[in-house]
Design a protein around this nucleic acid. Structure first.
Lengths: 188, 188
DNA sequence: TTATATTTAGACTGATTAATCAGTTTGTAA
DNA sequence: TTACAAACTGATTAATCAGTCTAAATATAA
């Protein structure tokens, strides 16, 4: 029914499989079971579609984590939850996670205003800042801690997708990795 | 003189600036001050050029770290050296580091045999394994430790390239980040 | 009902592009 | 000199692709 969503889903599948250059708009329309004109009716250019897809996925990713930050609970538990959830989101949505990386290392990133990108991390920043003030986290720039934290999610994603793991081993690895991440971030 | 190298250098500049799709082979030839046909004389297809460039950069990156591993010195000092050097290489060669990431999240990665990719990390693996056996590092899969280690390099690269830093602050940040990385990896 | 938005199919275009190819230059060695 | 291969040239080609256009159909809402 929702043709716009059909187009985005088809685009995600094809861009991940064949790259930006390797996927003609015509094929996206066919894969979405939509007329050629419909694609260009909703997205003026191919680039507009590429960026719209990125924004949707970033929002989806953020919405998956947001409830943890705003919810109740001990702050230290929240750190764990955020990490575990971030990794789980990436592993349950490998295409989406991959697309975001693919986009981040492409010239398309340049067309997203810096302000928009900044806005996406501001919620994390306030949260991390609180952890630093309470002397739970190392006394470093919150942005550095976020960058290293994201680096960890990136690292473990690569590790867990480089080979086959049983679900049990996967969970064990994620939990033990968090212990390592926590050793990295914690104050003492 | 060496036209092949001219082509690779030009390709690096243009691919990083405009992406794989955004750079016609014709432009690479012009930028390299070489005839169109010369490019295809050395590289049968555009893809072959893209992959050749990737392999060269990976080799260059490895050669920068290798002497540390094989050299003399305390193993714990080597861990620090490898981290610091890895970050420095990325920061001194942002184009090359960026290209490797761009390639890693592109369909071109699929054409590199897994065996070749494995071979690139085997030297690290033996080294890490020794650290684990000696109970200097946490008792985890060496590949996991390498993945998290690389995640850190990735994270700090993003942080240090997201804004301007004075050389002094940059070095301070790298050193302090290493302390955090070490807290993550060390046995106790 | 009427108007407005959305959708369809596919032919079309103008520009771009990867790759080719017939021939030229260069270095070297007989 | 001659011979030969490797390196190089750049105009040409055949194909592809993003985006347009048309005219009709269908849905949505005022």
């Amino acid at each position: 029914m929702d043709k716009k969503q059909q187009i985005l889903s088809a685009a995600l599948r094809l861009f991940v499989a064949n790259g930006f250059d390797g996927t003609p708009t015509a094929k996206i329309a066919i894969e979405a079971a939509v007329a050629n004109g419909t694609l260009f009716y909703h997205y003026k250019t191919k680039e507009e579609l590429i960026v719209a897809l990125y924004n949707q996925l970033k929002e989806e990713q953020a919405n998956y984590i947001l409830p943890i930050i705003t919810g109740s609970g001990f702050i230290t538990d929240k750190f764990r939850d955020i990490f575990i959830h971030s990794v789980h989101w990436a592993l349950s949505n490998p295409d989406k996670f991959y697309y975001i990386q693919q986009f981040n290392f492409s010239p398309h990133l340049a067309v997203v205003p810096k302000q928009v990108l900044k806005q996406q991390t501001i919620i994390y920043e306030n949260f991390i800042e609180e952890g630093i003030k309470r002397k739970l986290l190392k006394q470093q720039d919150p942005e550095l801690i976020i960058a290293l934290f994201n680096g960890q999610v990136y690292g473990i994603y690569h590790y867990l997708t480089s080979a086959e793991f049983t679900p049990a081993l996967r969970e064990k690895t994620i939990n033990e990795s968090y212990e390592m991440v926590w050793d990295m971030m914690k104050y003492m």
